[in-house]
Nucleic acid binder design. Structure first.
Length: 265
DNA sequence: GCGACAG
DNA sequence: ATCTTGTCGC
C-alpha cells in the first residue's frame, strides 16, 4: 500500500531497468513457439509471491511447473522469504525477482530436467512505464522465455481504463481467445487484452517478457487457461492436500487465527 | 490540488 | 498483494 520510497534507490532502479532493457528479446527464439499447437512444448512454469494480510515483509515465493498441454503439476516449490524492497509501482521486479530466481536455481540444481521451457509471470512484461516490467526482468536475468500476465490494467503510455477501453472489451472480446492490442501513444503495441476463457468477461493483459513474440505469448496464455487466470499462475496459489510444502499452507490458512492473537508477531 | 499506482 | 459475505446460476 505504501508508496513511500527513497529517491536515490528509485533513480538507481531506473538506471538498472534502462540497462537490462536492452537485453530483452521480443521475438520467438524457440522451435516450439513456431509449431501450430506448440506441439513440442512439454513444460510451462508459473511464479508468484503470496502475502498474509498485514505483512509487507514476509511472503511465500512459489514456482510450479505444469505439463503441456495437459496442465498437470510436475513440480511445486514454496519457500517463505523476507522481502527487502518495498512495493513501488513500476519497480515490482526489485521486490520479487531475487526470490523467483532463487526458486529457479533450486529447480535447476535438484531437478534440472523439469526446468520449464517458458514461465508465465504474474505481472507485466513490456507493458510497463519504461517497457521493462517484472516478466522482462525475470526473463533477462534467468534467460528463460517469459510472458507477463497481469490481472489489472496498468494505465501507462496513453493506455487508459477509458469508456473506449470498456467498449472494446464488450465489442471485441466475445469468446475465449479474442484479443485486442494495447497501443501506446507512440503507436507501439505493448501488449494485448485477452479474453482468457468463454466464461470470464474481464480480460487479462498479456505482454512479452523475453524470448517470445506477442502473438505466441497470447496464444500460449490462452492455451493455458481453464479459468480466467492461466493454470501455471493459478496453481501457484493452490496448496495440494498431498505433496504439502506445509510452511506456507499452514501460515496462510491459519492467518485469520494468528491475527487475533496479541502474541503473534 | 487531484488522480493513478502490475503485485 | 490481502480481507470479506452473500448471491446467483449451472
Amino acid at each position: 500500500m505504501s508508496v513511500v520510497c527513497d529517491d536515490e534507490v528509485v533513480k538507481r532502479w531506473e538506471r538498472e531497468q534502462a540497462s537490462l532493457r536492452q537485453r530483452v528479446v521480443e521475438e520467438d527464439t524457440e522451435a516450439w513457439q513456431r509449431c501450430p499447437r506448440f506441439s513440442t512444448l512439454e513444460r510451462v512454469g508459473g511464479v508468484d509471491l503470496s502475502f498474509i494480510k498485514g505483512d509487507e515483509v514476509n511472503a511465500c515465493a512459489q514456482l510450479v511447473v505444469l505439463s503441456y498441454p495437459d496442465l498437470e503439476v510436475l513440480y511445486e516449490d514454496s519457500q517463505m522469504v523476507r522481502l527487502t524492497a518495498p512495493y513501488v509501482a513500476g519497480f515490482l521486479a526489485f521486490r520479487e525477482t531475487p526470490f523467483l530466481l532463487e526458486a529457479l536455481r533450486r529447480l535447476e540444481r535438484d531437478r534440472p530436467q523439469l526446468l520449464p521451457q517458458v514461465v508465465l509471470v504474474d505481472g507485466n512484461g513490456l507493458f510497463h512505464y519504461r517497457e521493462f516490467g517484472l516478466a522482462c526482468h525475470l526473463g533477462v536475468l534467468s534467460g528463460i522465455p517469459c510472458v507477463g500476465v497481469a490481472k489489472n490494467l496498468l494505465q501507462v503510455q496513453g493506455v487508459t481504463k477509458s469508456e473506449e477501453h470498456q467498449s472494446q472489451i464488450s465489442a471485441l472480446l466475445l469468446k475465449g481467445g479474442d484479443s485486442f492490442p494495447l497501443t501506446a501513444t507512440s503507436g507501439r503495441v505493448l501488449g494485448k487484452a485477452l479474453r482468457s476463457s468463454d466464461t470470464s468477461s474481464k480480460p487479462v493483459y498479456v505482454s512479452v517478457g523475453h524470448r517470445i513474440s506477442l502473438d505466441s505469448a497470447v496464444r500460449l496464455t490462452h492455451s493455458c487457461c481453464r479459468y480466467r487466470v492461466p493454470e501455471p499462475i493459478r496453481q501457484t496459489r493452490t496448496f495440494s492436500a498431498l505433496d504439502p510444502p506445509l510452511d506456507c499452507a499452514v501460515l496462510l490458512s491459519f492467518s485469520h487465527l494468528c491475527s487475533c492473537s496479541p502474541h503473534c508477531t
